[in-house]
Design a protein around this nucleic acid. Structure first.
Lengths: 202, 202
DNA sequence: GGCTGATGCAAGTACCCACTTGCATGCAAT
DNA sequence: ATTGCATGCAAGTGGGTACTTGCATCAGCC
């Protein structure tokens, strides 16, 4: 029986799990944890509600499993590899900006909801922050090297914080402010310019 | 009968309203709109549940009234007045940074929850964004002047966006990243420095 | 064929919630 | 004193929700 998965469940089982997790994510992102009802999750997953409980035991455990499944770390090391191959620091920062925006957008729904849930639920599922935290650590290291080689100045921890802030807000506040949704390239160019050279007149 | 409030409700009535609104804010901020139950609101306000409905009709109307009451605009014009009296642009920007952080912190709870609710609820109570939107408009104007006088360069809309991003994220992501909660002054100094002069080595 | 384990199905339990109703109370203006 | 109004109180209604249970089905494996 599927020798590749020695101790794992049968293929069909894993499939059910994933369908449930996907449905959970959809609902969690659009209705929040309190708005996510087990019944609707089961329906959307094309699965009986009892099956859902047989798999995950509890609604809370289901939510935890979902966040664990979807908020996994992005391969930031790989991105940095690509970035390092670029010639100028402007190009490198722009590439990082693109990566930041793309990754944030991919999980925008989860991040927004988790941000509030963290407030809203005492025992917040903080695993939604695993990826950003990891990214920031690596970015701090990267900026540390840049400072060492004289391309940047300042405290790498604060630089990474400022840099990520620029793009974090760009994604998160997109709906609030005038949008200009298509302006990804422009946004990156401007933010990187400000980050590198400042807004002061020269 | 209390000639000062010709058509208004009696003093005791207004008091009840406010107590209910305060309790609603507390709960909304810590449990989200779905987690805010009329019963608990009434209890916390020291008021009968029926009274709550007699005042606001509907839970939704209560939430709307609460957000309208608490998310009112901050007097940004006044802040700009104070800012303009400062000598250097560094000082002015720092003062703006302080104001941004203070205002955001004062409504941090509402903002975080509203950010998710906007996703979570189709007809989001977008009035939570009134103040930030207003602030950004005025900040854009302010930066426009600075560009005209040659103290800043760039597009005022993007400058205001970048500037606010720096502080928005500082407040919103405080819990996520290493915190350094007390670092308000340091944060402002560093963010303003980056905004004005960039992080590029000089 | 017989066993095992994942699933479907239907009904049920024990809550919780938004919202209502009818009546009593107490305060304040007239 | 009487009237009006805000409020308290207690019970209730209709609906939703998390979670359970018992049984039938159907697949693959021995």
């Amino acid at each position: 029986m599927n020798a590749a998965f020695e101790s794992g469940p049968k293929p069909g089982v894993e499939d059910t799990r994933v369908r449930i997790l996907a449905a959970t994510r959809e609902l969690y992102a659009t209705r929040g944890s309190r708005g996510t009802t087990t019944r609707v999750v089961a329906d959307r997953a094309g699965v009986n509600e009892a099956t859902l409980f047989r798999h995950f035991g509890t609604k809370q455990q289901l939510l935890d499993a979902m966040l664990d499944y979807y908020a996994g770390t992005t391969n930031f090391a790989e991105i940095l590899e690509r970035v390092r191959s670029l010639a100028t620091i402007e190009e490198q920062l722009r590439e990082l900006g693109y990566a930041a925006i793309d990754n944030l957008r991919r999980k925008e729904d989860l991040i927004k909801v988790s941000m509030a849930e963290e407030f809203t639920n005492p025992e917040g599922h903080s695993c939604a922050w695993r990826a950003p935290t990891e990214a920031r650590r690596r970015l701090t290291d990267f900026f540390g090297e840049k400072i060492a080689t004289g391309q940047l100045r300042g405290d790498p921890k604060w630089l990474s914080r400022a840099f990520m802030s620029l793009f974090f807000s760009f994604v998160m506040a997109r709906g609030i402010w005038g949008d200009e949704a298509s302006a990804r390239e422009k946004a990156v160019a401007i933010m990187v310019d400000i980050f590198l050279n400042g807004a002061g007149a020269r």
